[in-house]
Design a protein around this nucleic acid. Structure first.
Length: 644
RNA sequence: GGGCGCGUAGCUCAGGUGGAUAGAGCAUCUGCCUUCUAAGCAGAGGGUCGCAGGUUCGAGUCCUGCCGCGCCUACCA
């Protein structure tokens, strides 16, 4: 509703200024910090002052005088040196909310969001959780505002990392595919791989002998033949399942899992290679250190360097970036090739996650061909993402290059205290650092499932202490919701370019600016409505009991008006967060609404209110809060437990 | 060396396109549970927004230089 009015007022000013002064001006609208200044403020007179060479105060007065009535606006006032402060018509505003006049518009066009993308060779860790939570929340934000979104999770099942674990099973542990398959059927196979991967990496560093293992394994996997290739499939498929399970604990589902094996087998790269050569986006280097390689000229993606990027190595194999260019082309429907698909798993909602295959399956499924693409990838890969976009541009797809977004985020590192708690020994130098980087190769990190388990355990203890009489399954369900709420909120509250120095104490906190704080507010709101039912009463028909005159009477109280206003800005908050690509803004908004509600809850005893109109109004506010909190939490991927 | 990012309260962080008195959580201190759940509420203290210039009616925000920290800069991904 607030969002609607913001747009309307902005448009009214823009149109009026265009006609009156013959100038197109982008009208900024801000929310004054002081409530006395009204609900919205327009500082456009300051902008116009420069163009018109008149005092801003005078222009503001002129605008207020001449702009005419705007639907939903009660008054315009000139303030300060030339601010225009806007006061909304409270009854009109509240009536609009009551009648639900602010549904999200449906926006045409498909947006592709790629996230998670974990190498399927070991258990997921907290860094991966940040990627998935950011990506999933961004998807929820877009969908909440009417965008159509396809969620892709790219699986590099033929890369070095998988090869290293395969080599570990084959050369180090001397296990047959049958033995590994049996192991893979056991719970927490991904944990086993986590340790094995660290062992293989250590082996590589310590002895030169191991190096040949990797090359041999990679060749076997690429040729898709023999025992090593078989092991590759077993390991990657099983670990992918483990990752999907882990992410499902966070409420994350996917639409399609494009795999590198199919990019290889279906010759996606060959098609992209032809295109790149044909349009001179790359060339064969004939001298220097890159002799014999196909490279992209540095000028295409960086201004200040002459380090060309190798796309095809001198031995004829393609680098990861090359494959990524092919994949990005496919995402936009520009490759002229498509995968085949089969269902991988069906979620409890009935939603199906598909996976690519290299042969026709008879299923009717189609993916890709988006208008815009968001790749959720950590900031350290900015360079590679620039090369991918440059590839599109060099091929003449400048619009698609423009719509290729690297949704970058900083890493999750470990605080020195956290390392100590995990029993990780640090050098003196490392102890002085603000944070320690996670390393899969060293097996240094906090595994996602371990963290989730720990959170659930803590939450369960809290729930049990408050509801000892409740059945275990119910308490556990609440604990899971609280644990996931705490985790997702913790990962979302930081803006993307902030390095998170992970700390158990902070992550396990359920007080203050946390997910559980917001959940608690939602539970309290719902409790009031439930208590009403227990007293044998039903919610009144608000539209009938609260006509505009009644709303005007109640909202004449400044306190009520400010509370309602604060609770009704969800759309504005989400749109702003989409524009800036910051899920953190939605998290922050959720916290603010919860704070406002807790304050309201404490100050007014809703069920004890004697005055019928006021009571109806308070109940409506409570219901409105409950809906807003639940909606916002839903966008953050956080469930509301039945009790806390 | 070059590129990107960061530096705001004791700690961890927010601060759309420059705007009115720089905010939140944690921690510390003081109050509030026979009331719809205290995972809560109210209040207090705590700031040369790294430093120095510049742009203008106005700078935490934009520009330049410096200081400190991190990441990237592979025929790994």
């Amino acid at each position: 509703m607030f969002h609607l009015l913001e747009n309307r007022i902005q448009q009214a000013f823009q149109d009026h200024i265009a006609v009156r002064y013959g100038t197109d001006t982008a009208v900024a609208i801000e929310q004054p910090k002081q409530p006395e200044f009204g609900e919205l403020a327009v500082p456009v007179a300051f902008q116009l002052a420069k163009v018109l060479k008149q005092a801003p105060k005078r222009i503001a007065a002129e605008l207020v005088e001449e702009i005419g009535p705007i639907d939903g606006v009660a008054a315009l006032e000139v303030a300060g040196n030339g601010y225009i402060n806007i006061r909304l018509d409270r009854a009109v505003y509240a009536s609009g909310l009551l009648r639900g006049l602010d549904a999200a518009p449906v926006v045409p066009g498909k947006i592709i969001v790629e996230h998670t993308n974990i190498n399927p060779n070991k258990a997921a860790h907290i860094g991966h959780l940040r990627n998935t939570t950011l990506g999933d929340t961004y998807v929820r934000m877009l969908r909440a505002r009417g965008r159509s979104v396809e969620v892709q999770n790219y699986i590099d099942n033929t890369g070095v990392q998988v090869a290293d674990v395969v080599a570990g099973f084959h050369f180090l542990e001397r296990k047959t595919p049958a033995e590994v398959a049996a192991l893979a059927a056991q719970p927490r196979f991904d944990y086993y791989c986590w340790d094995l991967y660290a062992r293989v990496s250590a082996h590589y560093t310590e002895s030169e002998i191991g190096k040949g293992w990797r090359t041999e394994t990679l060749h076997a996997i690429e040729a898709n033949q023999g025992e090593l290739a078989e092991l590759g499939h077993i390991v990657a498929d099983a670990v992918v399942e483990a990752h999907l399970d882990t992410m499902l604990r966070l409420g994350v589902e996917y639409d399609v899992l494009p795999r590198e094996s199919e990019i290889l087998h279906l010759k996606f790269w060959a098609a992209a290679f032809e295109l790149l050569k044909e349009r001179n986006a790359i060339y064969l280097e004939t001298e220097g250190k890159n002799e014999g390689c196909w490279v992209m000229p540095a000028a295409a993606f960086r201004e200040d360097t002459d380090d060309n990027k190798v796309i095809v190595r001198s031995n004829g194999t393609v680098t990861y970036v090359g494959k990524d260019i092919a994949y990005q082309l496919w995402k936009f429907g520009l490759l002229g090739k498509d995968f085949h698909y089969k269902p991988l798993r069906t979620y409890s909602s009935g939603h199906v996650a598909w996976v690519t295959t290299d042969e026709p399956t008879g299923y009717d499924a189609s993916f890709g061909g988006g208008e815009a693409v968001y790749n959720v990838i950590d900031v350290r890969q900015s360079y590679l993402q620039d090369v991918v976009a440059a590839g599109l541009r060099a091929l003449g797809f400048s619009q698609q290059a423009e719509h290729s977004h690297h949704f970058a985020y900083e890493m999750v590192a470990l605080s020195p205290r956290c390392c100590a708690e995990l029993g990780i020994g640090l050098s003196e130098e490392d102890q002085r650092r603000p944070y320690i980087e996670v390393s899969g190769r060293k097996g240094l990190g906090v595994k996602a499932d371990d963290l989730i388990d720990k959170l659930i355990e803590e939450a369960l203890a809290e729930v049990t202490s408050r509801h000892p009489e409740s059945p275990e399954s119910e308490r556990r369900d609440a604990a899971v919701a609280i644990a996931i709420g705490a985790l997702r909120y913790f990962l979302l509250k930081f803006t993307r370019n902030t390095v998170i120095a992970f700390d158990f104490q902070e992550a396990l906190s359920f007080e203050g600016e946390t997910g559980p704080y917001v959940q608690y507010a939602a539970v309290r709101a719902r409790n009031i409505l439930r208590k009403l039912g227990e007293r044998g009463e039903t919610l009144p028909d608000f539209a009938a009991v609260l006509p505009p005159e009644a709303l005007a009477r109640q909202l004449a109280a400044e306190d009520f008006w400010q509370i309602l206003l604060a609770a009704s800005k969800a759309d504005t908050a989400v749109e702003r967060a989409i524009a800036s690509g910051e899920p953190a803004h939605v998290a922050r908004y959720a916290f603010q609404v919860a704070q406002t509600f807790n304050n309201f809850y404490h100050q007014y005893h809703i069920l004890h209110e004697r005055d019928p109109e006021r009571r109806a109004f308070l109940l409506w506010m409570t219901q409105f809060f409950a809906n807003q909190l639940e909606r916002t939490l839903e966008i953050l991927g956080i469930r509301v437990p039945v009790y806390m």
